[in-house]
């Protein structure tokens, strides 16, 4: 039982990280924190891939004379290289948007942004009425 639970500790780490990341994205009001959460979430997936690509005691997959040698599966690592690039792009775009949002709204807090929108809407509405 304990083996079943703790023998796969790497998966536990992955899923803990995953949930932490997702929780941050959902619960935090700050746009910046959301991006941080997203990055954690994505990183957990990278770990997941690498975890099942790795074999205990395995080495890099280089052909040597020793045919007995165990080596890890290289494909997940390659995939994750791509995924990391995608993740960086996502984070960068998110941060860029935050900078622009901060310029336009003067805040990066979700509630404050919607408050600004609401004020704008009412101003527009009263303008129309005054006309």
């Amino acid at each position: 039982m304990i083996n079943e639970i703790f023998g796969v500790w790497n998966y536990w780490i992955v899923f803990t990280l995953m949930m932490i990341g997702l929780y941050i994205v959902i619960s935090k009001k700050s746009l910046l924190k959301k991006v941080v959460g997203l990055a954690i979430f994505q990183t957990s997936v990278f770990l997941l891939y690498i975890t099942f690509g790795k074999i205990a005691g395995g080495t890099a997959p280089i052909i040597t004379n020793n045919s007995e040698e165990i080596y890890s599966n290289p494909l997940p690592h390659v995939l994750i290289l791509t995924a990391i690039v995608v993740g960086v792009a996502t984070t960068a775009l998110g941060l860029a948007l935050i900078v622009r949002i901060n310029k336009a709204y003067g805040s990066i807090n979700e509630d404050e942004i919607s408050a600004v929108d609401l004020v704008d809407y009412h101003e527009k509405f009263s303008e129309k009425k005054n006309k």
């Binding site: 997702l22 994205v25 959301k34 997203l38 996502t90 998110g94 935050i98 949002i101």
Partner: peptide, 10 residues
């Protein structure tokens, strides 16, 4: 765009 990004990335 930001909301689209976050949800899309998830």
């Amino acid at each position: 765009g930001y909301n689209y990004l976050i949800l899309g990335a998830i």
